[in-house]
Every structure is written in structure tokens, then in C-alpha cells.
Amino acid sequence: MAATAVLALPLAACSGPLSTLDPAGPAASNIAILWWIMFWGAAALFLLVGVLYALAFYRPQMLSRFSVGQWIVGGGLIMPTIVLTALVTAAFVLGERLIPKPMEDQPPRVYAMAHQWNWQFGYDDAEGQTLQLHIPAGAPVDVVVTTSDVIHSFWVPRLAGKVDAIPGHENVLRIEADRPGTYRGVCAEFCGDGHTRMRFAVIAHAPEDYEAARAAAIARSGR
């Protein structure tokens, strides 16, 4: 965590209600760490190419002692192979941790049904539906996402990545909010004229308040 804070210092102004760099759950946090590692790595590589280019122009004698083979094998093969192998491996391991694998203590399932242009949320253990998604804070929840019409995409940037709502298919996204609060979400896949206003929120409640708050929300949207 301390490492992330140091890495993140130069761009501290990353907060925002929809910012992927202001994570509020484990999935988004891990992806933000991946981003910062890639950001600094990319910055270093970019600088390297820039310096080489400048030297080639202004101090060619410094570079011309390397043969063509050395340039191509060193810069074109060895360097990217090392960097990419490390990165692909790390990303794969992270991805494996984020996908909704079966767990011993299987998380509760909630259902996100997309329509042109709003979302309806349903629950395994409760009748009725809500217009915002209610979840307990501090524990993973599996969101089963699908659609009644065109393709949409369920995205709550502060909690996790997105997953598309595809007609005829069900996709599952595991989200978790560290603390109670309201986390804004948007539809990320273009879905027609109402795409822009297809926003929603995930409201995370303290576990002891969850059932009551959700029941109240269901009652409200039933009216």
C-alpha cells in the first residue's frame, strides 16, 4: 500500500467519483497498481527510445560502435521479450485472482438486467427489483449481467473492471466495496440514443444494515 502511495504521488489528483485510480475495492485497487507499474515502465522505455534517437542525431559516434545485429537483437528482441514476459505473467496471475471462480464460501449473486436505457437489479434472496444495485460492503458479490435488448456494459470504475451485457448470454463480474458508500456506474458500451444517461450506482451498506436498506429500496421502486 505504501508503495502504491509513493508511486501515485506525481499524479495525486486522480480522485473522482468515476476514477479508476481512486479505487474503493480490491479488484480496482489491484488494477490500479498494475496501471502504475505499467505507467512507470512505459515512461522509462519511452525515455530510452527518445534518448537513443537524440544521440543518433547529435552524438552518432557514441552509438555507431554497436553493430546492426546488436541493435536489433538487443533492442528489438531481448529487451521487449524480458519486459513482456514479466508483464504478461503478472497480468495473467492478477486476472486469475479477479475472475469469479467458485469459492468455498460462494458469494451472493445479484442480477443486473440492462434495457435501453436503464438498469434493473434483482437478488437471489429477495423478491422484487431495484434501480440502484445494493450490496453488502466488505464482501465479494457476483453480479450476473445480461440484457433484454442491445449490448450494454456494466462498469463501476472505483470497484472493478467492466463486463458486457450480451443478449442471450450471462456474464458474471465479481465486485467488492471496501467500505459502505455510493459508487457510481455507467454503461460503457454504446447502446443508442440514451447511452449517455444510462448511469446507475452501487450502494454498499454495512452488513448489519444491508437487508433492511435493500428491502426499503425494493419497496420504493415497487411504487
Binding site: L55, F57, P60, W71, G75, G76, L84
Partner: peptide, 26 residues
């Protein structure tokens, strides 16, 4: 994902061949 990352290698080969051409020329 791996295949997508891999495509960076032939691209890097071209970029370093260009840099080498510059470095060996005037």
C-alpha cells in the same frame, strides 16, 4: 493477450533497425 504483447517485438525490431540506420549514418 500474449499474442497482442508479442506483436510489440517485430515492431521493436523495426524501430531499432531505424535507430541503427541513423546511428551508422550521417
Amino acid at each position: 493477450s500474449a499474442a497482442s504483447a508479442l506483436v510489440a517485438i517485430p515492431t521493436a525490431v523495426q524501430i531499432f533497425a531505424w535507430l541503427a540506420t541513423l546511428a551508422h549514418g550521417r
